[in-house]
Nucleic acid binder design. Structure first.
Length: 506
RNA sequence: GACCCCAUGGUCUAGUGGCCUAGGACAUCACCCUUUCAAGGUGGUAACCCGGGUUCGAAUCCCGGUGGGGUCACCA
């Protein structure tokens, strides 16, 4: 296949991966200010898949440069979130690696060294303007309808002037040429050009001689040998600044890929008021991590064949940046739940059982006192959309119903002969020769015939009496799993409640 | 406001000038199956933002508008 690449010349199948020249190295660089956001999770997933697809390395870096937003335990929460989705990092703050340290705060010496170099070779300069002066300048420009661009008046100062002001606070600014333009060759969007006039001599180092993001990120990415910077679209506008830093340092510019954002259903930026926004919250609601990962994969990327249920290995095999969408996506929890159901049905039973345990525990289910958990889970897993629903679905196998579905009560418990039938049913079950699905079915057929009713008229009241619900697994397997004595007991108990007119409804 | 990105059903998307009477998935509606629910099956409703070009031909290319999003810090 030959086609026109984004640079305008004819290229082979895929010009991007330079697997012959160098190993692909990607990174995910969250700031530890909370839990893993689903947008961040997807960016991390794409970065990870891209690296794995080209037999490269995926790096985790924590951007913890002193800031008030720092949240305790956030770093570990981020790692837990990533790990739950099957994203593993080859290098990172916990596992180390040859390009460490992997915490931005621990790279301060390097940031300072590079800033010194820029100062020494004239690419950067000290700026002594105070925040008040800058604000005044900005206000003046705004009043004239001009973009708030720093005038660059401290550029005139030379090292001799700097020496004179030894005691005064300063920041380090990069000298940006006001002419020409800077082009970001984005792997997803193609070349994006920025007029240098809209950029100003931005700050590299703060007065305390710590780096500003746009500087630190360049020093870190270069220091870690990152070849492909895959990150959220919100960074696209910052990229020319970073490229200018690379150029001033005479460092090779990595490839960039800006993935579209994930928006809330009202097309605004995702925030807490839109409900669950973090991986943690979704998992807590009973979404399977496998499903969340699959869902996130499909948010902005599609497989060439159009299939949607894609496991991790297949995702690694298929993933590439050229099929990443340009448009921001809105997440849809309905499809996420559907996806969870797909995995609930097809994952190894043992895996689902493990995943259900915390949710069963939350409901106070003691699975030592009933049928084996795997039997219970097998019974309901394909009619649930979340792990929570699985737990709720198996609850009656371990605890007798505390209440009965209201609509069901009105429908199946109100007939005058209802309690009597439940008792008769119990009596027959007591002496049923074989406690099997088929024997139970035969019994119900036989009784229905004898009593001159439809089999369903026996089935529904039984289900309600035994499980408290009108929905659930097939009745005979349900009853079989609950057990003979317990079933009879529940039937008689329900009959008694009906007769005393005190059926608790839900 | 300036700059940048983007624009296919309610949502995720396929689509790289003729294969499009625009395909798939979720959701939704109807029917079938059925001991309930779920699953499954069948069928339906529903989209190329607008306006100009280019071309024999445009969802696809170009320009303009509109709309949405992002960035403009001594935050990351």
């Amino acid at each position: 296949m030959t086609r026109l690449g984004w640079l305008g010349y004819t290229v082979g199948t895929d010009p991007r991966p330079r697997r012959n020249c160098s190993v692909v190295r990607t990174r995910y660089a969250p700031s530890p200010s909370g839990t893993l956001h689903i947008g961040g999770a997807r960016t991390a997933l794409f970065s990870f898949l891209y690296a794995r697809h080209f037999d490269g390395r995926f790096v985790l870096r924590v951007e913890d440069t002193d800031q008030t937003r720092q949240v305790d335990g956030s770093e570990r929460a981020m790692m837990r979130g990533l790990a739950s989705l099957g994203i593993v990092w080859d290098e990172g703050p916990d596992v180390g690696g040859d390009f460490g340290p992997y915490r931005q705060s621990e790279r301060l010496a390097e940031h300072r060294e590079v800033a010194d170099r820029l100062l020494a070779d004239g690419h950067a300069y000290r700026c002594y303007c105070t925040p008040e002066e800058l604000e005044r300048e900005r206000a003046a420009r705004r009043a004239q309808g001009l973009p708030p661009r720093y005038s660059g008046r401290c550029r005139r100062l030379n090292p001799a002037d700097w020496a004179e002001r030894q005691d005064k606070a300063f920041v380090v600014r990069l000298k940006v040429s006001a002419s020409g333009s800077t082009v970001v060759d984005d792997l997803i969007r193609g070349p994006v050009s920025f007029d240098n006039q809209v950029l100003d001599d931005f700050v590299l180092m703060k007065p305390d001689y710590t780096p500003v993001y746009n500087f630190a990120v360049v020093v870190d990415d270069h220091g870690m040998g990152i070849t492909h910077v895959i990150r959220g679209e919100e960074h696209l506008s910052n990229t020319p600044k970073q490229i200018l830093v690379y150029e001033a340092l005479d460092w090779p510019v990595p490839q960039f890929a800006h993935v579209p954002m994930i928006l809330a259903p009202d097309r605004s930026k995702l925030s807490k008021r839109h409900g669950a926004t973090s991986v943690e919250e979704y998992l807590d609601q009973g979404i399977l991590p496998e499903a969340l990962r699959n869902y996130l994969l499909l948010l902005g990327w599609s497989s060439p064949a159009g299939n949607e249920i894609i496991g991790l290995d297949e995702a690694i095999r298929l993933f590439d940046l050229d099929r990443v969408q340009h448009t921001a996506a809105i997440y849809d929890t309905k499809k996420l739940e559907w996806m969870t159901q797909q995995y609930l049905k097809t994952l190894p039973l043992s895996r689902v059982v493990e995943a259900v345990k915390p949710f069963a525990e939350r409901l106070g289910i003691n699975w030592g006192l009933g049928p084996p958990l795997d039997v219970a889970v097998a019974l309901v897993r394909e009619r649930a959309y979340t792990l929570r629903q699985v737990a709720e679905g198996i609850r009656f196998l371990y605890q007798p119903p505390a209440s009965y579905d209201g609509q069901g009560v009105r429908k199946h418990f109100t007939a005058p002969e209802a309690p009597g039938r439940l008792r008769d049913l119990a009596t027959h079950l007591d002496v049923l020769e074989e406690w099997s699905h088929d024997a139970l079915a035969a019994l119900y057929d036989q009784l229905a015939l004898a009593w001159g009713v439809k089999r369903a008229e026996l089935i529904h009241p039984t289900r309600l009496a035994v499980s408290g619900k009108t929905v659930g697994p097939g009745l005979f397997e349900l009853v079989q799993t609950v057990g003979r004595d317990e079933t009879a007991k529940r039937l008689r108990h329900a009959a008694a409640l009906i007769e005393s007119g005190s059926v608790p409804e839900s």
